[in-house]
């Protein structure tokens, strides 16, 4: 059973996991277009001078993102943290290719992003499962779109469903599942077509605290196996620190990057140990303070 599950990640990546723990503890903050070719080789996503302006009613427009520069390295778990309305989801949608930036460019493996593609798999807070398909049908969807034969797609999907802990629910419809189970299906559906990057938009925001904790742990376990690049949007400081290599703290509208914090905590991370760890606690407190400062600024102005 375990062997089957392991098959999901290519052996080369699995072997690499051991040595990758010390990888970029202090990754370079790319300040824009000046990335050297050496950096670009490891960069998975580059966001260069991106702004996004939404046209609202009349002649008014709303500046959601202002001059964002960010580089996400291959295999990194990066969280974008900020108050609601800071444009953090918009930034994720720009990387997903669902929304076009008003200025600047987002690149994936060096190529400008012009639209959605199976190299970037989204997971939404609202799950966005296809209600007319069963759990199996949802998970198979991407594989079938990639031209994988039905029997093969089914076999792979069943393994993934087992991996996310939903064995026995293959033929249930999403409406028959709890919120946590729905999000597990959504994660499996996205993992199925093997994106290079996972784009997670407050994926656990609609779940109760207990389910949320369990899914965070499970996500980390899955991530430890193949170390996909993850861009994770959240407004929970603890969640961001617990999961990430790097936390991008954003300011209130217009969304700017306030600070990028490298989370120098060992992996694999065990929740029970981490909560007692003074380094973890300091990260949480520091970042919370950072966000509070931002709030004061906004109130004074």
């Amino acid at each position: 059973m375990r062997g089957k599950v392991r098959k999901l990640s290519p052996p080369s990546e699995r072997q690499a996991t051991g040595g990758r723990m010390q990888v970029p503890l202090r990754p370079e903050i790319d300040t824009g277009t000046g990335a050297t070719s050496g950096e670009r080789a490891r960069a998975m996503i580059e966001i260069a001078s991106v702004s996004k302006r939404f046209e609202t009613s009349g002649r008014k427009s709303h500046l959601a993102l202002s001059d964002i520069n960010l580089t996400v390295n291959d295999g990194a778990f990066v969280s974008i943290l900020g108050p609601s309305g800071c444009g953090k989801s918009t930034l994720l949608y720009i990387v997903g290719g669902f929304v076009a930036p008003s200025e600047g460019v987002a690149r994936m493996k060096g190529a400008a992003i012009t639209g959605p593609g199976p190299d970037r798999g989204p997971v939404f807070q609202e799950f966005a499962l296809f209600p007319w398909k069963t759990v199996l049908g949802n998970v198979m969807y991407g594989l079938r779109q990639q031209g994988v034969k039905r029997t093969e797609a089914e076999a792979q999907s069943l393994r993934l469903i087992e991996m996310v802990g939903l064995k026995g629910f293959e033929h249930f419809y999403p409406k028959e599942l709890s919120g946590g189970m729905k999000q597990r299906v959504a994660i499996a559906r996205t993992l199925a077509y093997r994106p290079s990057v996972l784009l997670m938009d407050e994926p656990f925001g609609a779940l109760d605290a207990h389910t949320r904790t369990r899914l965070q742990n499970d996500l980390l376990n899955i991530w430890e196996r193949d170390r996909k690049t993850v861009l994770f949007v959240t407004h929970s400081v603890e969640e961001a620190v617990f999961l990430s290599d790097k936390v991008v703290v954003m300011t209130r509208a217009p969304g700017r990057i306030k600070q990028i914090v490298d989370i120098d905590l060992p992996r694999p991370r065990i929740r029970a140990e981490l909560l007692l760890d003074s380094h973890y606690q300091k990260y949480v407190v520091d970042i919370e303070r950072m966000i509070d400062d931002g709030r004061d600024d906004a109130e004074h102005s």
Binding site: P116, R120, G121, A128
Partner: peptide, 14 residues
């Protein structure tokens, strides 16, 4: 139709 259903399908390669 919910926008994110369409996005999910597009990202899956539809």
């Amino acid at each position: 139709v919910e926008q994110k259903l369409v996005w999910s399908a597009l990202a899956a390669g539809t």
